[in-house]
């Protein structure tokens, strides 16, 4: 407090001295380029003024501002929404990793007793959660029950099915790479005729999701470019509308920084409000999808519920919107402001 007061007082007294005369003084100009201690305060003051001036301009033109903001919102909502969908799909499939299962088909010659010994041996391995032994008789029974070829099987003299061990690894060993290693190990056991990973399709799903993720990224980059152009064009039009004003400002000594500040802030506002719009659009869409998704997950006996945009995601959309708006405005300002010179 005290420091502030001492810093301010000389300036106050200085203004009091000059306050009596309203007419210009000979050979002196009181208006100079701001320097020294007051420079930083002046800098922030200028930004503060521009911030509210730009906000005033946005609010004075509600319809056209709203249209721009809506377009930006839709452009940002698309990648954000797809990201949410992808995240949900990943959430669902993550639960399926528990179901990783390796089927070991043993040699025909292996007897039931030997198969049981093998079950014990595999169960003892650290990465194994559970081993289920399906005897040829059980397998035949299941086959008869589900395949509808029951009568045909009567023709066979003996059971053609081998002993089968269903091996389920522990959760920590369920990642694709670990499972691959385990599969290799089991396949090399002498009594194993064939080892089959039942989750090949899961790997394919992951591959498809990787494509999806890349697709969302590409889309996001393209739409970010679109936002840049939208904001750039809006600011370009705004600059053209204020051509006379800019000319007058330049004539009475406004720097480029002073003139461009409100335009940069308009870009920032539009981008950020567009991001808020995007967030609302994503939330609304997810709300509309909520009912049908709930029904579907009920049909699958699942308690899955649609996740929405996480807080970090919201922040990313807001920051991205703001930055894109600012960058778009900056590009437009840099290109068009220099062209306007008083004549």
């Amino acid at each position: 407090m005290a420091r502030q007061a001492t810093r301010r007082s000389p300036r106050r007294s200085a203004t009091r001295v000059t306050s009596t005369d309203a007419v210009p003084k000979r050979g002196t100009s009181t208006v100079r380029r701001p320097r020294g201690k007051g420079w930083l305060r002046g800098y922030f003051k200028g930004h503060f003024q521009a911030l509210f001036l730009s906000l005033g301009r946005v609010s004075r033109n509600p319809l056209s501002s709203l249209m721009t903001i809506a377009v930006i919102g839709i452009a940002l909502a698309l990648p954000a929404g797809l990201h949410v969908v992808l995240k949900n799909v990943q959430g669902v499939s993550a639960g399926w990793e528990d179901a990783v299962q390796i089927s070991l088909f043993l040699n025909q010659s292996i007897e039931a007793a030997e198969a049981r010994r093998l079950v014990e041996k595999i169960s003892a391995m650290p990465s194994i959660e559970e081993v289920v032994h399906v005897t040829p008789q059980q397998a035949l029974g299941e086959f008869r029950q589900y395949s509808g070829f029951g009568d045909a099987l009567e023709v066979l003299d003996e059971n053609p099915l081998p002993n089968v061990l269903l091996v389920r690894p522990i959760k920590e060993a369920s990642e694709p790479l670990m499972v691959e290693l385990l599969l290799h190990e089991l396949r090399s056991l002498p009594s194993v005729e064939m080892a089959q990973l039942d989750m090949e399709w899961l790997k394919r799903l992951y591959a498809i999701m990787a494509i999806g993720e890349r697709g969302v990224l590409v889309l996001a980059v393209l739409l970010a470019l679109a936002v840049l152009l939208i904001v750039g064009n809006t600011i370009r039009l705004a600059i053209q509308n204020r051509r006379d004003e800019i000319e007058v400002q330049k004539l009475i000594g406004a720097t480029d920084a002073f003139i461009q500040r409100p335009f940069l802030y308009s870009g920032l506002w539009q981008g950020m409000l567009g991001a808020v719009m995007a967030w609302l659009l994503v939330t609304l869409s997810l709300w509309l999808l909520h009912g049908p998704v709930q029904q579907l997950s009920l049909l699958y006996n699942s308690n899955f519920s649609l996740g929405s945009l996480e807080p970090v995601g919201i922040l990313v959309v807001l920051v991205a919107g703001g930055l894109l708006g600012l960058l778009g405005a900056w590009l437009a300002v840099g290109r068009h402001l220099r062209d306007i010179e008083p004549t």
Binding site: S29, V31, I252, G253, F258
Partner: peptide, 15 residues
Amino acid sequence: PYVRRDIGIIFQNHK
């Protein structure tokens, strides 16, 4: 800009 601040200009069309 800084030089222009030291010159007061009055225009015919007011600006």
